[in-house]
Amino acid sequence: MDLPEPIRRRLGDFSRTVFVDQRHSELSPEDHVTFLNQHTDVVSSLPLQMALFFNMWFFPLWWISEVVMLHLKYLFLPDYYKFILITILILMTLIEAIRLYLGYAGNLQEKVPELAGFWLLSLLLQFPLILFQLFNEAILIQPLERGVHIILASFILVEALSGFAALRAMVRHTESRFHLRQFSGIQEFKA
């Protein structure tokens, strides 16, 4: 299942503008020959894939402990925090499922738009939500909650950093392949 084409195009454009280093975008003729000989490059990130794998197995444990802790402290919370915490739990569950899917698809299939979507969801939604739950003492944070929030925040931070590196490498690789195709097309045209 792929992303819809307009979203894919926008995320691809976003990735190219943010992650392409203009100083290294031109390849020399020697680099083109080297690139032609290595046409089966793999640019998936092993650290990102490992973090995604362990996060996928840890998230159900986080969810169960979060539901149990919310049930235990529910009566002692003000009404607005009850609403906020239930909303955050639902949002984080949905976002995490989408985020992990996009991370897997983007990294293993080397799809730049999916990986960019994963990176944006990690940085703009999941990380602030987990930090809210980790540092807001008014929600009566229990020791188990603090522990699982620290682990999930660590996963999200590692995934955001390694996702940035993987996304940058994939965009460079895609850009160099595009330039190589243009270069080889010009050579065929001259011959």
Rank of each mutant, 00 (worst) to 15 (best):
G147D: 06
R177M: 13
M92C: 13
A160L: 06
L120F: 10
A138W: 05
S45C: 04
L85Y: 07
F189H: 11
E145Y: 08
Q38R: 15
V68Y: 15
N107K: 05
V42P: 00
I86C: 06
L131E: 04
E145C: 06
G117I: 01
S122F: 01
F155W: 08
A51W: 02
E96T: 15
K190G: 00
G106S: 03
S162F: 12
L91R: 13
V171K: 04
L52D: 02
L108N: 11
S25C: 11
P128F: 08
E96K: 05
F53D: 02
L46K: 15
I88R: 09
R168G: 01
L52R: 04
L121I: 01
P113F: 07
L124H: 07
L3H: 04
M92H: 04
L140G: 02
F189Q: 10
V148E: 03
T87S: 15
S45T: 07
L180Q: 14
F178K: 13
Q126L: 13
M1C: 00
V171P: 01
W63M: 09
E145V: 04
S184E: 11
Q109I: 02
P47F: 03
F53P: 00
S25D: 08
G185R: 07
I88G: 00
L46W: 09
A160I: 01
L11H: 04
L108M: 10
F58D: 02
I150W: 12
F164W: 14
I139P: 00
L77G: 12
F118N: 07
Y80L: 05
L46A: 06
V67N: 04
P60F: 06
E96M: 09
F164L: 03
F189G: 00
R9C: 05
R23T: 15
L131W: 08
S184Y: 11
F178W: 12
S176D: 12
S15G: 13
W62P: 00
E66V: 03
L152H: 10
T17F: 01
L94I: 07
I86M: 11
V112P: 08
L36C: 12
F83A: 14
I64A: 14
V171R: 05
I84E: 09
P128V: 10
A191E: 13
F132G: 06
L120G: 05
I151M: 12
I139Q: 05
T87K: 11
A105T: 12
V33N: 09
L115Q: 08
E114T: 05
D31Y: 05
I86P: 01
F132W: 10
L46V: 10
A191W: 04
L100P: 06
A160F: 05
E159W: 05
L123C: 11
F14E: 03
Q126R: 12
M56F: 15
L94S: 09
A165K: 15
V33W: 05
S45Y: 03
T87W: 13
M1L: 04
A166E: 03
W63H: 07
